[in-house]
Nucleic acid binder design. Structure first.
Length: 482
RNA sequence: GGCGGCAUAGCCAAGUGGUAAGGCAGCGGUCUGCAAAACCGCUAUUCACCAGUUCGAAUCUGGUUGCCGCCUCCA
């Protein structure tokens, strides 16, 4: 078992070695709760969910912290816009975040702290930074002095003198260096605030993660994750604060996921092309979304569009059709428990995942297993199914479910998976299942009388309604082609 | 201006030195009354282009072209 991880800090894959054997300390930046989650949040959540799940299967004790930023300028501004209390706004979107994550089957982290519950930790860290003279106070605001931290820029691979300050944002003239960032922000009248040695205020933009990660994971921990966009300035600043404050290495492995584009364009306010999780889960089964998000290496950009989603759905159908087929054969049969140690597909899957969590390769292994199982069943369609075949099928099914469980796919009951979609399309298309069943019964009668012409005519009629029939020995099944 | 990424079949996408995974779509075959599904076979002598290193490169080096991201809103 040797996992390698691409470390943003060193810009190469490294062998993963935890600080404490068998234990992984992981922190991932969670949302600032001022708006609904979009598909980009979903990618980050799903990617780190899968990383956490996989590490657990490799016998690691995973301590996973994902925070909520529940106080910040964006929250205050949004709350003011719609005349809501900032705390209420944050609570509302935290609740929505949980609904979205549950819908996507993203597991809960070990700890999900909120900044407003850790103000004391923030103040203590700021005091420490002031004592070390790497921060300064101006009019109740506290800034971190980037020039005091030699390694500033090491994560984002840039030097202070190469950057172009003020290109996009006006520089606060009180700063010693344009890249100095705020640790503690003084409150304007009416803003939420906490008492501090520098007056009433709130935590700055980056300090919370330094304070909370230290609280839950210690001063040095194994993995810190988030979206690519957080590399600079957020994570760069976290490193500066934490390493200056604690005098030791902050994080061993930095993992950043790529963006989700929409029809080849970046999601942006100006394009108004955000895809919200709550909308997407209405349209697609959660596992279709997960399969799509995991079909590309997590560091690369992925394009969300109708074609790619439908392709993912067809692919997932293939897995569920296989599970359904296996279940029909092994249902109610005693399967000997022996010979279940050797799991070649699972091993290949782990090999793929060991290489920087290569889920695209892992998915390929699942489909290899699907083909393998279908082949076994094709070769044993006639006659009595032997014990060995039953064992093989049950083993490969277990492998598929085990691999799927890491990715969060294949966990639905196959019948329910198809049934749910059928129902939702029937509702959408305002079709009546009874009408369809009646036509199928008519066709069955025609077939029994070998009236192929009439049977085919009925099938054509159903086909024009996008109903596909499948004749099985135990009766005719139908599906909606979508 | 600085930093970085990407270019693989009709589409999506793995593959970082040893002779091109997987999914979707398509074509042929088996099966089927006919279909559907499944399986088998076919669909990139080739990985943007040029040069170099090497016994050997999609994979390494240099260059060219094109696309994209970041440089204090952002997953």
């Amino acid at each position: 078992m040797s996992i390698s991880i691409y470390n943003t800090l060193t810009r190469k894959k490294e062998l993963f070695q935890t600080i404490e054997p068998g234990k992984v300390l992981m922190y991932v930046c969670g949302p600032t709760v001022y708006d609904s989650c979009h598909i980009g949040h979903a990618r980050s959540a799903v990617v780190f969910d899968v990383i956490s799940r996989y590490l657990k299967t490799q016998a690691y004790d995973v301590v996973y912290v994902r925070n909520f930023t529940d106080i910040d300028d964006k929250i205050i501004n949004r709350a003011a816009e719609i005349g809501m209390d900032p705390k209420e706004l944050a609570d509302k979107y935290i609740a929505e975040f949980y609904r979205d994550m549950d819908a996507l089957q993203v597991e809960r982290a070990s700890f999900e702290p909120r900044v407003t519950e850790h103000i004391d930790d923030v103040i203590q860290l700021v005091e420490k930074l002031l004592a070390k003279k790497v921060a300064y106070v101006v009019d109740g605001d506290v800034f971190f002095a980037v020039e005091t931290y030699d390694a500033y820029g090491k994560l984002s691979n840039r030097r202070l003198e190469d950057m172009d300050p003020g290109a996009r944002v006006e520089v606060d003239p009180r700063k010693h260096n344009p890249y100095d960032f705020i640790l503690w922000k003084s409150a304007k009248p009416g803003e939420p605030s906490w008492t501090s040695p520098w007056g009433k205020g709130r935590p700055g933009w980056h300090i919370e993660c330094s304070a909370m990660s230290a609280r839950y994971l210690g001063k040095t921990f194994d993995i810190h994750g988030g979206g690519r966009d957080l590399i600079f300035p957020h994570h760069e600043n976290e490193i500066a604060q934490s390493e200056a404050g604690h005098d030791r290495e902050f994080v061993r492995y930095w993992i950043h996921n790529g963006f989700v584009n929409i029809d080849k364009e970046k999601m942006s306010k100006s394009l108004g092309n955000f895809r919200l999780v709550k909308d997407v889960v209405q349209q697609y089964h959660s596992e279709v979304i997960r399969l799509f998000l995991l079909s590309k290496q997590y560091r690369k950009p992925i394009d969300f569009n109708q074609t790619s989603m439908e392709t993912s759905r067809t692919a997932l159908d293939r897995i569920y059709a296989l599970l359904l087929r296996i279940d029909a054969i092994i249902a109610g049969k005693e399967i000997p428990a022996k010979a279940q140690e050797d799991m070649p597909f699972w091993k290949k899957f782990c090999h793929a995942m060991d290489d920087d969590f290569n889920t695209a390769n892992g998915i390929a292994v699942i489909f290899n297993a699907v083909r393998h199982a279908n082949r076994i069943m094709d070769e044993n369609e006639t006659g009595t199914i032997s014990r060995n075949v039953l064992i093989s099928l049950s083993v490969v099914k277990r492998e598929i479910l085990r691999m799927g469980a890491v990715l969060g796919i294949g966990g639905d009951v196959p019948e329910a998976y198809f049934h749910t979609r059928r129902e939702s399309i029937l509702t959408k298309e305002t079709m009546d299942a009874n009408v369809i069943e009646k036509l199928i019964t008519d066709r069955e009668l025609a077939r029994q009388e070998k009236d192929w012409e009439r049977a085919d005519q009925i099938r054509e009629q159903l086909a024009s309604m996008n109903i596909v029939l499948k004749d099985h020995p135990d009766g005719t099944h139908w599906e909606i082609k979508s």
